[in-house]
Design a binder for these strands. Structure first.
Lengths: 349, 349
DNA sequence: AAATTTTCCGTTACCGTGCACGGAAACTGC
DNA sequence: GCAGTTTCCGTGCACGGTAACGGAAAATTT
């Protein structure tokens, strides 16, 4: 049992052939007689031969590239957290002989996404990681990837099809459901406010829609009498936000519970900090630095976070596992845990 | 920029030395003059040399072994979750040429721990992972490891000393603090019950003590008037537990909040299920299957979990990073996030 | 100054696979 | 029977790094 692992040389010796021929059999290359082929296969099975990965990779001496296609972003925005995950993966990738590249586009400009896709295809990468931001364009893109036999992994959210290698992201509908559970804390509510972003989405795949469904379903099931107010704000006009909120809450003094389904809860903390006596119960999403700050000072009650860095790390890991070790991921759909962050556990995330 | 990665040969050429000497520098082996050493180091930095993992592992052709020393346990107990992490690591380890072994002992029998330690030392492992269960004996053990220059990593909790490579575990005091925060939900409390395990601990390192301190500190700071009742139960006499609890809660009808600082909240769910009308608010620790079950059916309000599987994965990862890549962990103390589990996010952990 | 030790470094034989090259044997057509 | 194909297979170098071996140069001792 302490014997060395069997090598190609052993098989060559056992069969009376040379390692060149054994190699040909292993790779199903032509130029082997049926008799020799059968003999080699038999010995391989008998000895339980497994090729030495290191030697193989060393001899191949290929360089592979994984490309992550992401919206470019300002400091402190959600996608920056994904970038952190990419940075984390850099080390392990480079020591596996894989280089990591990011390609950015403007998430509000479909043309820039098309350009990014073209760029990626020209790079001929060994694998691609992407969040599906523009639904139709993403379908077009991944079809091309499929045609080139380039594996790809979705993060953040996914599009249904049978061609993606894996998906790493939050269970979005359930995150809305959970949000409602935390917001109400099982206390009966009469009213609650949902703060929404005012923007024309043309063809964007928007997880917040699905999330809102989860939220509303929870409320309907548990507190059907609760009235849900939608309040719209525009992140491009930050100065107007406080006014809009002041106006709304003046008209609805009974509302003490606030939820928001995107990562921008920090947009309303300025308003909240002006009314500490109201003790609003506020639940938002994602561990942006600005959100965490408001969480720690008590302005925000809880955040639901989804480990965007881990999503990137795992997506890249799944690809490199495939590329280097030939291992298919065990699951295609990998839901990340929904982390509940409060002021007393936030700093450990 | 499309140039090949720099190799040892490149460095040899650039410095006018041979690759043997470069290799000596890379491994800090002796027999290199200061001048040559400096020259090589400079070129390495300039070219940004990174060794080729495959070639290195292939040439070394070593087999190393990482040993995890753990309390053996029944199905469904805490340490089983750590075992899951070990199983997860098996794949990545074996493809890195590392084999993983577990050595078990009885957590209530110090002699069995001594025997386990001896066994581990005889195995001459390349690295060791362990939770420090018996304080003094662990010190004796890790001293021997240190003498043999075997790196070791603490999980779950840690002992203060300067010899451990890394620690992966929950911030224990803070977890008690957080527990109180969740239990009270910022509502003023008059009374609360702490369920404790009755057992004589001889020399065991017990995280629950520290955790209770955190809990009590939170309560003292936020609700100084709240009376905390200690209720002791004995896990070896499960039939008595319900009676003890019935008796206690009959005598203290005002108590509606319950906390428990070990992983055994499932011991009291039988009692809780008999009194659904009381709507006890119950917070416990760790995502054991039995606990999760009570969480999902609403008996338990929340669990604070610490990713025991991740602890194992990361501990093993830190060791193999050191063994294979020579990378020291960036941090010695790695606190795991304290996950707040409720009935609606538990299944994603 | 010779003898010895120590310090330093180049050489070389691997590790297990991949693959190009070329040669031997078998098979073809005349 | 000979030249030309085709089929099959062995040889040998390459991949990048490791580490033992031994020799030259420098430092030390006698």
């Amino acid at each position: 049992m302490e014997s060395k692992k069997t090598t190609i040389k052993d098989i060559a010796r056992m069969t009376g052939l040379s390692k060149g021929t054994v190699d040909r059999v292993l790779h199903n290359r032509e130029g082997v007689s049926k008799k020799s082929y059968a003999k080699v296969m038999e010995v391989i099975k008998d000895l339980g031969y497994e090729p030495n990965l290191y030697a193989s990779l060393l001899a191949q001496n290929k360089k592979r590239e994984i490309v992550v296609v992401l919206p470019g972003c300002e400091k402190g925005e959600f996608w920056e957290l994904v970038e952190k995950g990419i940075a984390k993966s850099q080390d392990s990738c480079s020591s596996l002989g894989i280089s990591l590249q990011s390609v950015h586009y403007d998430q509000y400009d479909i043309e820039s996404f098309r350009a990014a896709c073209k760029k990626v295809l020209d790079m001929e990468p060994a694998g691609v990681v992407l969040p599906p931001m523009f639904k139709n364009e993403t379908f077009v893109f991944v079809d091309k990837l499929k045609a080139k036999e380039i594996p790809f992994v979705y993060i953040d959210s996914k599009l249904e099809s049978d061609s993606y290698l894996a998906y790493f992201g939050m269970p979005i509908y359930q995150s809305g459901y959970l949000c409602a559970h935390i917001l109400t804390d099982e206390q009966n509510l009469k009213e609650a406010a949902i703060i929404r972003i005012q923007r024309d989405k043309h063809g964007q795949s928007d997880p917040t829609i699905n999330r809102r469904e989860g939220f509303i379903d929870y409320m309907t099931e548990h507190f059907p009498g609760c009235e849900l107010h939608n309040v719209f704000i525009n992140p491009n006009k930050p100065k107007e936000i406080d006014g809009i909120l002041e106006h709304f809450f003046a008209e609805h003094p009974g509302v003490r519970h606030i939820a928001m389904f995107n990562s921008r809860i920090y947009l309303i903390t300025s308003f909240l900090e002006k009314h500490p006596e109201k003790k609003y119960r506020v639940v938002g999403f994602d561990n942006l630095a600005a959100n965490i700050k408001s969480l720690k000072n008590g302005t925000v009650t809880a955040l639901i976070a989804q480990r965007p860095d881990d999503q990137a790390v795992k997506a890249i890991g799944a690809l490199s596992d495939l590329l280097v070790f030939g291992r298919e991921p065990s699951k295609r759909d990998n839901f990340m845990p929904m982390d509940i962050l409060t002021r007393f556990n936030a700093e450990y995330y």
